[in-house]
Amino acid sequence: MKFRKSLLAAAALVFGLATVSAQAADNIRVGLVVKSLGNGFFEAARDGAMEAAKEVGNAEVIYTGPTSTTAEGQIESINALMAQHVDAIAVSANDPNALAPILKRAMQRGIKVISWDSGVAQDARIVHLNPSNNELIGKTCVKLAADVVGDGGGDIAILSATPTSTNQNIWIGEMKKALPDYSGLKLVDTVYGDDLADKSYRETVALLKKYPDLKAIVAPTSVGIVAAAQAVEDQNMVGKVFVTGLGLPSELAGHVEKGSVKSFAIWNPIDLGYSAMMISYKLATGAQGGPNSKIEAGRMGTISFDENGDGAMSEPFVYDASNVEKFAKIF
């Protein structure tokens, strides 16, 4: 009996879904393909995409993706979207190369394809939307440090991952470029925690001992920032030294509460999903995309794409005591 009931329930569910998709057949339908389902980051992106769909009116988001982060699973999702003749596909790829053949095929059938968050090979999409870019990340990190140090200025230090980490080195380079804009800030040292919690912790303790006048530690790594905050708390330096940089709200909410972190930055998944949806919608309704193009993305403003078709959404979103709790539940 129970078995029969659950079968009926499943059938009802399938029928229910069918009627929903049949109702909205005239809309511009955009398949939002994510790395895996059940991930708070991507569910927040879906909410943003739905906000964009509501804003433009005649659009529909089809949120889909595999249960585990595999390229093969994403190919199946894309196959299903192609079969439904969607107007556009916006994908955060598990593999830039493995998805290329199927996305090229989708484009051949007239579907507008973009990648966002995690890109695909250049010839397999029209444009790629990065959450931010190196320059904006560097600038944001320095600005965050300047905010906590205050008008008086003071010493700051950088806690990075490994000395060979490409991303980190580019961001540190951009931070050094932005430093002259804040005359009070003095970068005294750059140390490396290798993205290991214990080494990052020890390096932070050493920094605190070595530079008694230190006002802020900037850690553009999600492992480093947590370890540094913990070290500052354990050394009873809360209020004297502030930790900032790039990190995840779920990992930092506790440290914001304790005061070792005042504010930090990372991309906002809601804005990212919103922008990806807006760009897909614009492309599906006739906007021209590709290298050296500009697309207007609603409340996120106009996004420019460079000669490779890569675009940056905005500077990283700043989190502090006012919003960290809300986002900690997301990612």
Binding site: T64, P66, T67, S77, N79
Partner: peptide, 10 residues
């Protein structure tokens, strides 16, 4: 189920 956009978990 893919055509009906049933999530992979379901």
């Amino acid at each position: 189920m893919g055509l009906l956009n049933v999530p992979g978990i379901v």
